[in-house]
Nucleic acid binder design. Sequence first.
DNA 1: AGCACGCCGACT
DNA 2: GTCGGCGTGCTC
Length: 659
Amino acid sequence: MDASHFYGQILLPLPLKENFVWRAPAELSVGQWVQAPFGKKVLTGLILARVAPPAVTDKIKTILAPLPLPPVSGKMLEFLLWAARYSLSPAGALLKIAMGGIDLTKPPKVSAETLSATADPEANQPVLSSPQKDAAEQLLLADDLRPLLLFGVTGSGKTEVYCEAIAAKLRQGQQVLVLMPEIALTTAMLARFTARFGTEPTLWHSGLTPKRRREHWFAIATGKAGLIIGARSALFLPYADLGMLIVDEEHEAAYKQEEPPIYHARDLAVARAHIEKIPILLVSATPSLETIVNVRQKKYRRVDLPERFGGAQLPKVQLIDMRAEKLPPRQFLSAPLRQAISETFQAGEQAALFLNRRGYAPLTLCRTCGYRLQCPSCSAWLVEHKRHGRLQCHHCGYQTELPRQCTACKTPESFAACGPGVERVAEEAALLFPQARVALMVSDLLPTAQAAAELMDRMQAQAIDLLIGTQIMAKGHHFPNLTLVGVIDADLGLGGGDPRAAERCYQLLQQVAGRAGRAERAGRALLQTYQPEHPIMQALKNGDHTGFINAELREREIWQLPPYKKLVAVLFENSDLKQVEQDAVLFADWLRPRLLASMRLLGPAPAMMALLRGRHRLRLLLVTARKDSVQNLLQEALLVCKHHHGTKIKIDVDPYSFF
DNA sequence: AGCACGCCGACT
DNA sequence: GTCGGCGTGCTC
């Protein structure tokens, strides 16, 4: 081969197992975006590396053209490859995220100049309290690149503090990425950044229009965007000059991408910051146990913001022991909760009831023979939705009418609703408080952002007295006149065999309770529970976050769970049960004799959802020491254990969901 | 991920 | 006799 060309490995935005080689004009270099013929198409990809001339060259094609874009840095390439190896995802699947689903050969027509042309760090500097000033100074200590946890209760002014760190990086002409859970990317949050920096930050999330998406991607890749606020996928973008990473609400489970490529954006953000040698801030009022342990082991630094800035008070949390309440059947609001709601209405204030269960009743059974209505394609009960007058599977979308007679014993009109969903709580509340204006806040009733905004407006305008909702009620939005939050079933999140169930339950309840009394009014939260002595309930009642952390860490140590151990889940799926069993056993049998002494392999066992959308599911769980590297072993297992006839294997490093 | 190739069921 | 199902394999 002459000197005018070299051989280069090119990464394409496809989930391929191997990277192919092209002939490349000598003037091109590693990191450049290029167009390469692939099959019948021409794809945009990245030059990953120069390689020695291959033995067989007859299939090799030549790169067509480089794109007029800044080349991707060596650190970005290193990060992509590291993340791919760690998560056992094809690097091309991550490159696809990095490219944002955009045709890079078509730059936006409108210049991105007007977009965010480097936010102005001096635009609107707030007056910081003394602890805020101290915290901001600590964030700006440049000589320590350990990840830094910024810890402070809701309303302590964490955002104002980290905005000082953002301002410092913007002054240096560098980019800053603030990661947020998708749900937190609201206009209200955006307005705060806009007010502080004079211009809108550049947004990145799944809801962007194609036009905006294109504009924002090019602004980020060319360095025109200074401050970027994004959901988890924003971590993979090719920043022109990234100076700092911030992960707001670092404990949020929404950072975990559950579909392939499976990754945890907070953990990968720490890795990216390490590779890029830039500071990273993890921000939370309720840090994850992983982060807490890293702080205790001095792997992370920690800065505290102890006071609630502006004088608003945390809600008073009260437990209602449901064992003592002895409620009659089909009734779910206890006497103290009913009393508290009345008092709230009399004071002209608003109340909210939280139950993390959509629909009318989670289970419908036959009073005669006990038969339970189940989804034909999933291991799940059908949930009655009175609104549509139908039964629904919450996992696959299957719907059916309520049968007139029992499917099993044929007794007519024998089905009975069992347990509460939000619709049923609303029904009870309407009976108890006939004058109250009751509204439901549930994802299936708020299909558009507009519908959600309208509900928020009605709540803010006090056209609603009682708001009843699921999870989506827990996040964002504060209602100045909401002074009471009742939790119907505080124990709901505790069950379910998932190692982080207790942690998530605690975080969710704390967030829900935090909806009450965020302005000058004091709020209160009433939790209905059958286990008031449970450490979670006690910690919530006493506002004792450290107490919860310590109790939960002890549990995790006893049960050998994260953050003391590392987990890897391997999920096998196939509509043919025999086949999926055979493939899972083969994989496990190959793996078992190759484990280190510090490793244990559990399963194969049926997944929690043993049947999902008509597919049978088996799981293996690998428990290892934190230090162990499992990627090579699992990679080899995937290659060696040829699976057949449609068995899908998903590997989830550091699993959060055990469905 | 696409797309083509390749062997078994119901139709103009 | 064909049209077409999607299982398997390939893409530099």
